[in-house]
Computed example of a mutant assay.
Amino acid sequence: MSRIAPLEPPYPADVQAQFDRIMRGAPPLMLFRVMAGHARAWEKFRAGSLLDRGPLPLREREIVIDRTCALNKCEYEWGVHVAFFADAAELTEAQVRATVLGPADAPCWSAAEQALLAAVDALHHRATLGDAEFAALSAYYDADQILEIMVLCGFYRTVSYLANGLALSLEEKAARFPS
């Protein structure tokens, strides 16, 4: 289940309102329930302001999140995002699989998406972007989008640490890593 006990219903009114806003009527994820049981951690988590839409289109946002979670071996969060957003982001089965098992330059990706994945890989492995990686991103994304890409990578690395460190059980409706 979780190494730290999750908040159990009924939830305080303010927490229920936050869950309703984030989950749009679906039951809250285990990760959210654990975090919400600890006011300071929950506040900091939500203050990341990355649970909303940003300057990236949904497709690119999900590619960044899926790849970051896959690189961090976080099946929990990867599975949640694939289950809830892959269809809306128009990710094919081959692309979903490639977020876990494929190289950044896999032929299932457009040139812009390959630049995006190469940047995610670089940030994960080296904690920086080389000049060539930054130039490739800049060919397709503006400054606000590039900053969002970097912040998303950092935020979802943290989410991966939380889900993995808490040993969260996979959500029932979440996808599973391809073998």
Rank of each mutant, 00 (worst) to 15 (best):
A122W: 05
A139D: 15
Q145A: 14
S160K: 05
S49A: 14
R24Q: 13
C108A: 02
T128V: 09
K173R: 10
L7V: 08
A111S: 12
P9S: 13
L170N: 13
P12E: 11
R176W: 00
D52N: 13
A135R: 06
A111F: 01
M35S: 14
D20W: 02
A17R: 13
F32Q: 14
P6N: 03
E8V: 13
L116N: 03
G102I: 01
H124W: 00
E113R: 05
Q95Y: 02
Y11H: 12
L58C: 08
E43M: 05
D52V: 08
Y140D: 02
V100L: 11
I63W: 06
F155G: 09
R21F: 02
T92F: 08
R21H: 03
T99L: 04
L31K: 10
A41S: 15
A13F: 03
V64H: 07
A132R: 11
L168Q: 06
S169C: 11
L162E: 11
E62V: 11
A132T: 14
A112C: 01
E43S: 13
L147E: 12
A86C: 02
T99S: 12
A26M: 13
E43F: 00
R3F: 00
W42C: 09
K73F: 02
H38Q: 12
L166W: 05
I4K: 03
I146S: 02
D105Q: 07
L71I: 05
A36G: 12
D131W: 08
A135M: 08
L129A: 11
W109S: 00
P6R: 06
A127Y: 08
L56C: 09
A119F: 07
T99N: 00
D121G: 01
A163L: 03
D87S: 10
E171H: 13
A167P: 02
Q95M: 14
S179V: 09
V100Y: 03
L137F: 01
A89K: 00
Y76M: 01
R46P: 03
L50T: 07
S2N: 10
R33W: 01
T128A: 15
A135D: 15
A118S: 13
V96R: 14
M35I: 10
G37R: 05
R61H: 06
I63E: 01
V100G: 01
F134T: 07
V64C: 10
A83H: 04
S49W: 03
S169Y: 00
E148N: 10
V82E: 10
A118C: 04
G130H: 11
R59N: 06
R24T: 08
L152V: 11
P9W: 12
A139W: 04
V159G: 05
G25H: 00
I4F: 03
D144C: 04
E62C: 11
A98G: 09
T128D: 14
E8D: 10
A106R: 00
S179L: 11
V15Y: 07
C69D: 08
L91G: 03
L91K: 09
H81W: 08
A88V: 00
L58N: 08
I65G: 08
A119N: 07
L58V: 07
L31S: 11
L50V: 14
A36P: 03
R21Y: 00
M35G: 07
A115I: 01
Q145S: 13
